[in-house]
Amino acid sequence: MIYRNKTEAYWEPLLTIARDELGIETFDSTGKPSADIRLCRVEDIGRALERAYDFGLLVGHTVTRAESAKEPCA
């Protein structure tokens, strides 16, 4: 699978989570099926998803606060 949005701000944190929790060093395909397929423990996948969810909440909160600070007071 080829990912085209590597310049998105969220890309590096998600790769960091994948690296830390799942041992995945890159999202790029090597072209070798045996190298691109990985077994992961369910608890590791759960932990990675939880971290990604928490990251999304943090970013959403930060963006909301930044937008609120821009609004003029009534």
Rank of each mutant, 00 (worst) to 15 (best):
T26P: 03
C73P: 05
I37R: 14
P33R: 14
E50W: 09
T7C: 09
G23R: 04
N5C: 06
A69P: 08
E12H: 07
H61D: 15
T62N: 14
F55A: 07
A52Y: 05
R41F: 14
P13K: 07
I37G: 06
K32G: 00
P72F: 13
A48G: 15
Y3M: 04
T30N: 01
V59H: 06
L39P: 00
E43W: 02
E25V: 06
V63W: 00
S68M: 11
L15H: 03
C40K: 06
F55H: 13
I17E: 07
R65A: 10
S34R: 09
A9D: 03
K32A: 11
G23Y: 04
E50D: 12
C73Q: 12
D36G: 01
I17Y: 12
D28R: 15
P13M: 09
G60T: 01
C40T: 07
C40S: 10
G46C: 03
L57Y: 12
T30Y: 01
E67V: 05
K6N: 08
E50H: 13
D28Y: 14
S34V: 11
P13R: 07
I2Y: 11
C73N: 08
Y3E: 05
F27N: 08
E8R: 13
A52G: 07
G56W: 08
E43L: 02
I45D: 02
V59D: 05
E50F: 12
L57K: 14
L22S: 01
A18L: 11
A48T: 12
G23D: 06
G56N: 15
R51Y: 06
S34E: 15
S29L: 08
E25F: 07
C73M: 06
Y10D: 10
V63I: 10
Y3A: 02
D20A: 11
P13D: 08
L15M: 13
E8I: 10
S29G: 06
K70S: 05
R65N: 12
A74I: 10
D44M: 05
M1W: 10
T62S: 15
D54M: 04
E12L: 09
L14V: 13
D20G: 02
S29F: 03
L49I: 07
A35W: 03
T62C: 08
I2E: 13
Y3N: 05
E71K: 09
R65K: 08
T16W: 11
L22H: 00
D28G: 13
R47P: 05
D44L: 04
L39E: 01
V63Y: 01
T16N: 15
Y10K: 05
A9Y: 00
E12W: 04
F55S: 03
K32I: 15
G23L: 05
T30L: 00
T64S: 09
N5V: 02
G31T: 01
A35Q: 10
